[in-house]
Simulated scan of single mutants.
Amino acid sequence: MSSPPPASADDPYPEAEPEPEPEPASASAPAPAPAPAPAPAGVDPSAPIPWTTAPSLPPVDVEGRRDAARIIRVALGVAWAIAIAATLIGAGLVWSLISVEDPFGIPGGGEVELLVRTLAQFVAPSLLSTGLLGMVALLVVDGLRRAGRIGVPVADGSGGPS
């Protein structure tokens, strides 16, 4: 048997070695034919295959979406009111601290005024910062809601903002 010529270095497809030829089957014993698979009982061949049919979508609950959007708007309105109230009370307390004649001196009104000024010194900064931080958070949430990133979209066809 002769060997194939050596592949050149620039040949991209070198020849593979030939496969051995299969031995012929004896003529006296033919191979049996495979038996046909029986059809499953109770299956209608004309019925559609279950995984090829499109799933039916549940009906859109427009009233439920409107109610959810209304609840979100009311909740955001209440949160805005609380944030604004905290900011205004904190600003009022700060103003009451600095509007006296001598903000760093001993108050002339007695012990009650000293108690009010001490309370205002501790409460006013936290109310101001909480109110302003709440406003920033509400602006972010309202922007995301209007952009459609959170909340339930309302498809009422009005075309206006929700």
Rank of each mutant, 00 (worst) to 15 (best):
R66A: 11
E113G: 07
L115G: 13
A68M: 01
G105I: 13
G110W: 02
G109L: 02
G90E: 01
L114R: 03
L114V: 03
W95A: 10
V74F: 03
I106W: 10
G110L: 09
P107V: 13
A81G: 11
W95M: 07
L97K: 14
L114M: 09
A86L: 08
I106R: 11
W80L: 05
R65P: 02
E101W: 12
T87D: 00
E63D: 13
P107E: 00
S99W: 08
I82D: 09
G109V: 02
G64S: 11
G64W: 08
E101N: 14
L97T: 15
L93G: 00
A83S: 14
G90V: 06
R65H: 14
G105W: 10
L93K: 01
I98G: 08
V94I: 09
L76G: 03
E63I: 13
I82Q: 06
V100S: 01
E113H: 05
D102Q: 03
R66F: 07
A83H: 03
T87Q: 04
R66L: 12
A69V: 15
I89N: 06
I72Y: 01
L76C: 07
W80K: 08
R73C: 03
L97Y: 08
S96W: 05
E111R: 15
D102M: 07
D102P: 00
I71D: 07
A91S: 12
E113S: 08
S99C: 12
E113F: 04
R73K: 14
A85L: 14
T87K: 08
A86W: 02
I106H: 08
A79R: 04
G110I: 09
A85R: 04
T87S: 05
L88M: 06
